[in-house]
């Protein structure tokens, strides 16, 4: 990891009256790093973003963003370098998309003429340029979300905080969004995003952080988390049938329900693969490492007390 960390959270706790929204969180984010933030509803993801943005202050602990505390006066100049997509925002309904974006661009320091140009360019980028002269109240959900994204991209931020960026986006727009994230990352932008839609995210994040009820359960690259969780790799095979169930090396790994599937722990994977490839009647092989969803479920199940109690408490009320 690089030494220049853009964000440093040390021992952050945030309490709302009686409720503890975040508890003793430590985190660092380097330049050009993409962090995925995952957790159940009410886990504290949005709270963490708000703390980094400095719109709320931590109860305990220390935050530094671009070397300053975000909730102090000194932070105002760093806000030019930050883009934020809030989770639920409805923009000025009576304004057109272009007017909304021009306004925000001006507030980010663009001159009158440049702000409009920049706004148009961004609207083209997110694909709502055809509707930019229409009032926001006529926009579909996905179009609003795209407008929100365009807003976050204003002024090529060095740090992007995206709260559920793909909600309401169609599959193509989602793919385009992740392409943009990759592109920004290559330009040195750091990104924190949180999402409940796990498939598709994993290729685009460097690191994942899983939180539950305000506590960090795990953090690391996906490979690291997989190892931590000891989740087996799934190997689907074709053409082996009987050989498989009789092979003493493979028997311990056979899936209980489907006997053409093996579940192999990470450390045995290569040995098993070599062995499988040496079998003459193997027709096809498909290797799937544990995906983000399985990793996520594993870590949330690790700590069933917290999540379950919060659910049941909710249900009783």
């Amino acid at each position: 990891m690089t030494t220049t960390s853009l964000i440093t959270l040390s021992n952050i706790t945030k309490e709302y009256s009686s409720l503890c929204a975040l508890q003793a969180i430590n985190m660092q984010l380097a330049q050009g790093e993409v962090l995925g933030l995952f957790g159940h509803n009410g886990a504290g993801k949005t709270t963490m973003m708000k703390l980094i943005l400095g719109v709320i202050s931590p109860t305990h602990g220390n935050i530094e963003v671009f070397g300053v505390k975000p909730d102090t006066k000194a932070a105002s100049h760093m806000r030019n370098k930050i883009g934020y997509l809030p989770e639920n925002v409805s923009f000025y309904e009576q304004l057109t998309g272009l007017e909304v974006l021009t306004y925000f661009a001006k507030l980010k320091g663009f001159s009158n003429t440049n702000s409009k140009k920049h706004a148009i360019a961004l609207l083209e980028k997110v694909g709502v340029d055809h509707a930019m002269k229409r009032q926001v109240k006529t926009y579909s959900k996905g179009m609003r979300q795209r407008l929100g994204l365009a807003q976050a991209f204003i002024g090529q931020p060095k740090l992007l905080l995206l709260d559920e960026p793909t909600v309401g986006l169609d599959p193509i727009a989602t793919a385009e969004f992740y392409q943009t994230v990759d592109q920004l990352k290559s330009q040195g932008t750091s990104v924190i995003l949180c999402s409940h839609v796990l498939p598709g995210v994993e290729q685009h994040i460097d690191r994942a952080m899983i939180i539950s009820s305000g506590q960090m359960l795990a953090t690391g690259s996906l490979a690291e988390l997989r190892q931590l969780a000891h989740l087996p790799t799934k190997i689907s095979l074709q053409g082996l049938d009987d050989t498989l169930t009789q092979d003493p090396i493979l028997i311990p790994y056979i899936d209980q329900k489907q006997n053409n599937i093996l579940r192999v722990p990470e450390q045995d994977k290569m040995d098993i693969l070599r062995h499988l490839l040496s079998l003459p009647n193997l027709q096809d092989i498909n290797v799937e490492p544990a995906n983000l969803e399985q990793v996520y479920q594993y870590f949330l199940k690790e700590k069933p007390v917290d999540t379950k109690s919060s659910y049941s408490a909710e249900a009783i009320k």
């Binding site: 309904e93 980010k108 320091g109 807003q151």
Partner: peptide
């Protein structure tokens, strides 16, 4: 209520 106040305060605007 519409969420723009929160957003505005993340801008370089006090």
């Amino acid at each position: 209520e519409s969420g723009t106040l929160l957003l505005l305060l993340t801008y370089p605007l006090n």
